[in-house]
Simulated scan of single mutants.
Amino acid sequence: MTLVAAALFLPAALLGGCGLTSGSPLVDEVRPGSVGQGLPLKGAHLTVTSKNFSENIVLGQIMGLAFRAAGASVLDRTNIQGSIGAREAVRSGSADAMYEYTGTAWITYLGHDKPVKDPHEQWRAVAEADARNGLAWLPPAALDNTYALALNQENERRYGTRTLSDVAALAATDPGAVTLCVDGEFAARNDGLPGMAKAYGMTVPASRVQKMDSGIIYTQVSGGRSCTYGEVFTTDGRIKAMRLAVMEDDRHFFPNYNAAPEINAKALREHPAIREVLEPITARLTNEVARELNAEVDVEGKDPREVALGWLVREGFVRKG
């Protein structure tokens, strides 16, 4: 059974445990800027969701605040544990919208083994396939949050690795040098550790793979003792802050993970203005923007909603008060 098929059979009690039946009204006083003029979503009651890592939470807050500025009443159900729970919320109608990643949908939910190399074609293929699941995908951002392995500068000098092929070679010639820190999803996903290891012929014993929360991975890699290499996201602001070296995916294994609004198809039919509200915002989201916003949360300790609102105001999309 594919992951997307499994999601369709998640019991109601489990979904409730993921936070799909809770949430809080988004009450921020925001007004239209360059988006939301004329309050095209006035009278709409929309629920936004996200996964439980900083970037996706910020994107969920950006979406919710934009809907709010356009006149909608918004329920905030961001920060859901795991990828499947958030997607299922949108598919089932428990939530109306989120920012999802094209590679995640193509590999993890839709069950494909190989990514589509062209980013736009990857998005198009996902959008066409997911239309059958009651999901509509709006045009993607340039923001491409793909996976990578990274290590600290001391270990970079010690081992001299620059690419994932180098890491595979090191694991073969000096097995004791390679210890991986990954989160639970990456350890199991086809577009994560199992697929990467197969693509690169990388053999790392299970005893040398540590599973932990994704946020802890960065500090462990920075320290360089518990793990030589750690799973990171290429748009994470902690990479620069902690001066980590990212290994090049020289065989282009990882898919394109462009962020795009994933909307419940019924909600989009009822409120087509969702498209006009989100498209200019999505078009401004890049890897550079993501690294900046992620660093505000993960390095400076700011609240994701504060970060989202600050960016929307600076870009002129919305106004406060």
Rank of each mutant, 00 (worst) to 15 (best):
R243E: 11
F233A: 13
D213G: 11
R251I: 01
N287I: 10
A260L: 01
Y229M: 13
E248K: 11
L285R: 04
L285G: 02
V289A: 10
L285H: 04
S207G: 08
A283Y: 08
P261T: 08
A283T: 03
K198V: 13
G201Q: 11
E288G: 11
L278Y: 00
A241D: 10
K266G: 07
V232N: 01
D213H: 11
N258V: 01
Q220F: 02
R243M: 07
M212C: 06
E276S: 15
K211H: 09
H252L: 08
M247V: 01
E288Q: 14
E231V: 03
L278E: 07
A199R: 12
P255M: 03
G237D: 02
Q220R: 06
S226H: 01
A273E: 08
G192Q: 07
G224W: 04
Y257C: 15
G201V: 08
L268V: 10
A197I: 03
E262A: 10
R275H: 09
G192L: 07
D236G: 00
T219H: 14
V204M: 03
K240M: 01
V246P: 12
T219Q: 14
Y200G: 07
Y218G: 00
V232Y: 01
A290Y: 12
C227N: 02
Y229E: 09
I216D: 14
G192V: 12
T203W: 00
M202W: 14
A206K: 10
D249Q: 10
M202N: 08
A283V: 03
A245G: 05
P194M: 04
E276D: 12
T228E: 05
T203Y: 02
N190F: 09
G195I: 00
A206M: 10
I239F: 02
I239P: 11
R275L: 07
C227Y: 00
V204A: 06
P255K: 06
I263L: 15
G192P: 06
K266M: 11
I263E: 09
T282D: 04
T219M: 13
V277A: 06
D191E: 15
Y257F: 12
